[in-house]
Structure formats: structure tokens, C-alpha cells
Design a protein around this nucleic acid. Sequence first.
DNA 1: GTCTATACAGTGATAGAC
DNA 2: GTCTATCACTGTATAGAC
Lengths: 192, 192
Amino acid sequence: MTRTVFEKADVIPLVAEVFRELGYEGASMSKITARTRLSKGSLYHFFPGGKEEMASEILAHIENWFIRNIYEPLERDDPLKAIHNMWREVDAYFRSGQRICLVGAFALDETRDRFASGIRQYFRRWIDALCAALVRAGASTDAAAVISEETVGGIQGGLILSRALHDETLFERTLAGLAERVTKCVREDAGR
Amino acid sequence: MTRTVFEKADVIPLVAEVFRELGYEGASMSKITARTRLSKGSLYHFFPGGKEEMASEILAHIENWFIRNIYEPLERDDPLKAIHNMWREVDAYFRSGQRICLVGAFALDETRDRFASGIRQYFRRWIDALCAALVRAGASTDAAAVISEETVGGIQGGLILSRALHDETLFERTLAGLAERVTKCVREDAGR
DNA sequence: GTCTATACAGTGATAGAC
DNA sequence: GTCTATCACTGTATAGAC
């Protein structure tokens, strides 16, 4: 029998995937052990606080990924390039809509209240970073604020719809539509 | 002690609210009994199939509500009036974003697979009914198809965001933005 | 149609051997 | 760091009294 030795950094993405598939309440310890092939002993070794600690560290891990790959570029790189990078990274991260947003899923039921500040922060910073990039690209402050909210919300809605309709093309169509509107917004305001 | 006597029609909305608050897996029988003040005996009397039967009947109940109040008007009434009616009903139904869409929540995890056809139908018919109304109002078939998907997805995203950010105004802002885009789409295409 | 009592499988969590 | 064995508890579901 093979005995693979992990460290925490390897374990977090594995467990995260189970939470994504089953939700916070649906992801029981036995489901997690079955799908990750890690025993309860190993899991409690890495996360003495159990499920709550797992989910908490997973949320932090997700936020860090978005900060590095999406928010920071939006906040300080060339805005149009950073926005283009966002579409590409988001499509890859959510596997063209085949993978859900765990933070959005947690927001829908009372799981939200357990992780309220992490959930709020993730969306708040995404919207603000996109808004800042749009303003730097020449959009008006008002228009940028509106379309940033619509974009981040639109991505979440696209994930729900593409899963509900079993339509893998829907998420990419959603991203393309959002990208077009964002581009138009920048052009119109910058050209005034 | 008071002993209220219910029939199934009274029970469904009560249980539905608990599923909305806690999700399918989070809504345990004991949580349902505690929040509805109905005993397990009563619940199994109405739903011999347990949780799965409850959720199944709730989904059917929700779809019927949407058919009567939103889809059918979109399919056969004056399109502009029916669309205006939709914004009003949706805002009231989701309590300005304080109440989530159970169908959308179920779509996010593996609960989707239990109720796949009901979930698919709910969104499919919503998008199609809105699309048909837009075409009758003068929009081009292509534009109507695109904006119908964006609208139904945008509503779902608005619900996630307003909950995540604890911002009651966000959902109404989302609806207003979607309404504006829908109106513009009809005017542009009809005026060609 | 309401309730309580009960069965027993599954839950999160811990201890201790390797 | 891995695992199995075991804990007390909560899970769904059923039976039967009122």
C-alpha cells in the first residue's frame, strides 16, 4: 500500500474541492476522508479545529490567490492589461463555469455568518480593485462603481446559471458579455 | 398549550423558509422542527419521503408561483407591462435581496443532481419567457436571447452579492440596472 | 393531524499505536 | 504524519398513543 506524505499546503486545495462540491454542511468528515483519501487522523493533525478551521483556512487561501492573481494587478498594473488578465484568470479559475465560487456559495445560507468578514472582504476588494482600474483607465467614478458591482455579480450569476442549465458555454458567454460592456464603458467615458 | 392544525399548503412555505436559511444539507429535521414549531411526527405525516420529498415539493411550489406570477404574464400579456411586473414581483419575492433563491442555491453543490430537472426547468423557462416577451416588444431575436440570460443571471448574482456584503440596497440597484439595459435593448431594436 | 419514544446509522472529535 | 479504534452526540426515519 502506498503512503503519501503531505504538508498543509498540499491538503488545503484537496479539501477545498470537496467543500466546493458539497457545500459547508454537506462536506462531512467521512465524505472529506473518502474524496481526499486522507484519514481523519491526518485531517485533524492539520486542522485541530476541525471543519470550521478547514473552511476558514480555505477561504484565506482563496482570497490570497485572488489578491495575487487578480486584485493586485488591477490595483497597480496597466488597467486595461489587468482587466484583460482578469477575464483570463477568472475563466481558468472557475474552469469555464464547471467549478463554483466557494465564497459565493457560503454567502447564500447561514454559513455566511460563520465567515462573514472573510466573505465580505473577498467581494469588497474585488469590486473596489476593478473600480479603481476602471477609473485609471478613464471611466467616470460613478460608471466605474456601477459596472464593477455588475461585473462581479454577473460572474456569480453566470456560475449559478451554467451549473443549473448544465451549459458549459454559458459561463464563457457571460464573461464575454461583461468584457464587452466594461470595454464600452471605458471608451465612452474616456472619450468625453 | 396551543395546538395549531395545519394542512400541507400551510406547511410548505414554512419548511421552504428553513431550506432557504440553511440549505439542503444544513436543514436537518431537528432544525426544521425547531424553526417551524412542527414535530417530526407532523412533518413525516405530510412528507413520508422525508427531506427529499419536502425539497421536491417546495421546488414544485416555487416553480408554480413563478409560472403564475411571472412566466405566464411574460408569455402572453402585453410584453412591456409584463416585464415591468417582473421587476416588481422579483423585488418583492426576494425581499429586496434579503431572501435568497432556493433554486439557485441548490444549483451550486451536488444537491443539484438530486433535483436536476426541476432546477433546469425553472431557469430555462424564466429565460425563455423573458426572451419571448422581449421579441414581442420589438427586440431582435439575438439581442433578446443574450439579455434574457444576462438578466436572470444578474438577479442571481445580485442576491449573492447583497448577502455577502450585507448591503440591502445592492439588490435593488442591480434590478434597476438590469431594467435600464432591458429597456434600452427594446428601444434600440424596435427603432431600427 | 398531533405528539413522544425509540431505533440505529452517521456525525464531529479524540486517543494512541505505528 | 499516518492510521485505526472509539467516544458522545445528532442525523433520519418509524411506531404507536392521543
